[in-house]
Design a protein around this nucleic acid. Structure first.
Length: 266
DNA sequence: ATGGCTGATTATATCAGA
């Protein structure tokens, strides 16, 4: 079973890139973030034509929005209203593979604005509150004791080599200690397996996002690892491979995030 | 190195992203 997470930055604008990816890489399940459209505007028939007949969508107008497109049936779809503000940052569904369920949770964590101070920056306060609620919610036994995946754009690069310059980014939202400590605590509490790092040593640079503002993103290579796939302990023996499709950042009119995939041998 | 860019909006400047 192959599952991909990708912050697409407008699913309508970038459907051609999505189609190219699906046809070449053939994931069973695709989790998208920043779809940026209402549910009624989601290009569902285009996904169905490519064999992704099972759709779970949590959209909103203009901003945010998450979705799961799957070749396998999706059950028990849930859209949790984190921080009770009515935005679209989570969707989960159960995928059955060989008759055994895997619970897939797709997140788009708030970016957090510029200033890493919750007293003066409401966006950063929102990000921290979201993480606290995420921590409490996924600490339930049902997550860790069953076959669960946490995927998505978590907007935090937790490790030193998840950013191009650790020291320079310590005061930059996405890599500040208050955020990275929280994320590491959530991982530790749930005994989550950080699947990308399971296949790449901690000393090796690993990025999934490169800013649009860098004139030569590849040569400068000032990336961050903002996109994640975590697996619950029961899935540990099934983790097979990870792929970060760096080349997608060089496609025409790209997203600033690239697809990140996990293959499970179930 | 924190924006030099990008996308959406009943747009033509503003907000958001990270």
């Amino acid at each position: 079973m192959k599952i991909t997470t990708w912050n697409i930055n407008s699913v309508r604008l970038r459907f051609p890139q999505v189609a190219a990816f699906l046809q070449t890489h053939q994931p069973d399940v695709l989790c998208l973030q920043e779809t940026k459209c209402r549910d009624s505007e989601f290009p569902g028939s285009d996904f169905r034509k490519l064999g992704y007949e099972h759709l779970a969508i949590n959209g909103q107008k203009g901003y945010h929005g998450v979705a799961i497109a799957s070749r396998l049936p999706l059950h028990e779809v849930e859209r949790r209203n984190f921080c009770n503000i009515g935005d679209a940052r989570h969707i989960s569904a159960t995928v059955s593979v060989g008759g055994k369920p895997i619970r897939v949770n797709n997140f788009y964590v708030p970016a957090g604005g510029d200033e890493p101070d919750p007293q003066t920056n409401p966006k950063f306060a929102h990000k921290l509150a979201f993480l606290d609620e995420l921590d409490e919610w996924i600490s339930q036994d049902s997550f860790s004791k069953n076959r669960s995946l946490i995927v998505g754009d978590l907007n935090i690069a937790p490790l030193e080599h998840d950013v191009w310059n650790h020291r320079a980014l310590l005061k930059v939202v996405s890599h500040t200690p208050i955020e990275t400590d929280k994320l590491k605590a959530i991982i530790a509490r749930g005994k989550w397996i950080d699947a990308l790092r399971r296949f790449t040593p901690a000393e090796q640079k690993l990025y999934t996002w490169w800013s649009y503002r860098s004139p030569d993103w590849s040569a400068a290579d000032k990336g961050r690892r903002l996109d994640h796939i975590w697996a619950s302990p029961p899935l540990e023996p099934c983790l097979h491979t990870i792929e970060i499709l760096r080349e997608a950042r060089g496609w025409e009119r790209p997203s600033d995030h690239v697809p990140v995939s996990l293959v499970l041998k179930l």
